[in-house]
Design a protein around this nucleic acid. Structure first.
Lengths: 343, 343
DNA sequence: CTGAAAGCGCTTACAG
DNA sequence: CTGAAAGCGCTTACAG
């Protein structure tokens, strides 16, 4: 790789002049500049951002720490993060934690040592201390999906109202025995959805029926098993709300195997809709979450913090995104499948 | 952030000694060493990998350039890449191209300027020249899934045999009119699958029925529309092979909407199985591809090239992974749904 | 308008 | 066993 020095030699000027010419950082005689640009082009010169950042103090890299990427929600967020970051001249370093706090710790340390300018993360619920430490070192942080620490910025969905509205929606369709398949109450989004669910139950005088676990719940099999259990234990069950899409797939399959009809016997919906719901044999009603927008908003928020002069860093900033109901066949009798052609 | 200098001051030694002590790079008096380690710990010293690499010449970063991540195949590869890279002390910079050559070009330049040590990519089919240039600059390259350039290393699936075996499998089940929904022949995997499909057709004396396009095909709607068309045009159609899972979902839905039964009237299978096939209302037979293993193999291959002494860089290295048939309900009449509980 | 110099944080021959 | 010095590739006051 050609370096600044090579260009300088070729153009017969000092490296500092080359730097100025190429960065438009101060006036350089047009003729000199032309010579420099020609030389740079000739040699295929490409600035070395790594070392540039050494002087400038910024790496133009952000880290994205995510539990998993094969769940549509997170891969959509990643898509938003990636494209917004590139648009603003930043690169994205990715770290997958599998929701394992030890891996999360390793990821966070790796990012810190790699000198990223900021980190977007969906935290596991642990490592709060480490995350604050890193923030205290001057690395910007934005939490996404899960707000674990109110002192750090965050971008989350309106989970409580999502839980409430889901019950209300099913109630209005006539459901009276509504089961909730949820995740660990130690993770904010699940806890919040549960609160919304509870609030609606009280308002409508319904019975609480919850299947949840502190072990991993973000899976087809968890949805399948919980749904099967609820169907057995509550003969009057007429609706199931799943916290996430992938559980919803398990629920649909379980209802089928149990010999009941969707939506006539059992209505099914997901509270974190993304991508998959409209591509099924029985399409699934869900509260859709604007994942990609949330990802790009996180980048905006993060970079605002990164680029703020260090005297007046913004305080923690919290942004809420609304989820929106999309009705599909799992709750309403199949009319024309209008949604089927898009993806 | 504390720097080496701070630690040196605190421990009352030269920075070079601190460097040696912390890196175990030459003998340091145990007492001195202890003092240094204590000081480093006290100050919460963390090495700055960015600048370290300036001296060492290695960044310990690899780039991963991928068309999209919401397709299970690619997110599984990413999972393999991420975990293997971290295991070996490397970080992963991700770039999503959307299969758009211009975006790919921007990604590649960004990675080159960011001084990554190597790049794993699923190329769009263009930018061959740029990719070679980057390789010529000393950046290692491994192609994954699509082998666009035989001069560069690659990790791909045995697509031709996958196409052949799929037809043979369906033929043995009794199918005689087998449609193929494919992608652009300009992309190697699709072209290869087509060749395998053709070879089998000739062997079994079957009619060729193909739906493909050079526009994006990796979607539910493409699968849906092609399947609908084939069902209309070929009344004797009794099987459909989709190149990828997501097309397969569209096919399943189209067959249902068309009023035919799976698998009795129409057998359906996907040639790039991953994750989703077993989570459906009608589970889908597919040729499963070991995506995560391929991702981690790509990292091994890449890092071998990166860390080889520059005198004897390995020549291009090509590795083929076998796909394996997994039978599910879309081709065989539903017996016990044994597969349903895992994910 | 442009050169010479210092320095970002680290590593590594070179002395001693 | 450890210090002093040079240097990785770049940027940026400081002179002139």
């Amino acid at each position: 790789m050609a370096t600044l020095k090579d260009v300088a030699a070729k153009a017969n000027v000092d490296v500092s002049t080359v730097s100025r010419a190429l960065n438009n950082t101060s006036y350089v005689h047009p003729e000199t500049k032309a010579r420099i640009i020609a030389a740079a082009k000739d040699l295929g010169y490409r600035p070395n951002t790594a070392t540039r950042s050494l002087r400038r103090g910024r790496r133009k890299i952000i880290g994205y720490v995510v539990p998993r990427t094969h769940v549509a929600l997170f891969s959509e967020i990643l898509r938003g993060v990636d494209s917004k970051a590139r648009e603003l001249g930043y690169s994205v370093m990715i770290c997958i934690t599998d929701d394992n706090p030890q891996k999360e710790e390793a990821c966070l340390n790796q990012l810190r040592e790699g000198n990223v300018d900021g980190i977007i993360l969906t935290p596991t619920g642990k490592n709060t201390r480490l995350i604050r430490d890193i923030h205290a070192c001057g690395i910007a942080i934005v939490q996404i999906i899960r707000r674990q620490d109110h002192l750090l910025s965050s971008i989350v969905a309106d989970n409580e109202s999502c839980g409430y509205e889901s019950v209300k929606y099913l109630y209005n369709l006539g459901s009276r025995t509504i089961g909730l398949i949820n995740g660990s109450n130690l993770l904010a989004p699940y806890a919040e959805r549960y609160i919304g669910y509870r609030r609606a139950l009280e308002e409508f005088h319904l019975q609480e029926i919850v299947a949840a676990s502190e072990k991993p719940t973000n899976s087809f099999s968890f949805g399948y098993e919980c749904a099967t259990r609820l169907l057995k234990n509550y003969p009057s069950l007429d609706a199931i709300m799943a916290a996430v899409d992938i559980q919803g797939l398990g629920v649909i399959r379980a209802v089928k195997d149990f010999g009941k009809k969707i939506p006539d016997d059992i209505k099914v919906m997901s509270m974190t809709g993304h991508t998959i719901g409209k591509m099924l044999e029985t399409t699934m009603t869900s509260m859709e979450i604007p994942a990609s927008e949330m990802g790009s908003a996180a980048v905006d928020m993060l970079i605002a913090e990164i680029e703020a002069p260090s005297e007046d860093k913004p305080r923690a900033c919290h942004k809420l995104f609304r989820t929106s109901l999309t009705e599909r066949e799992s709750t309403v009798c199949s009319h024309a499948s209008g949604n089927v052609h898009s993806d």
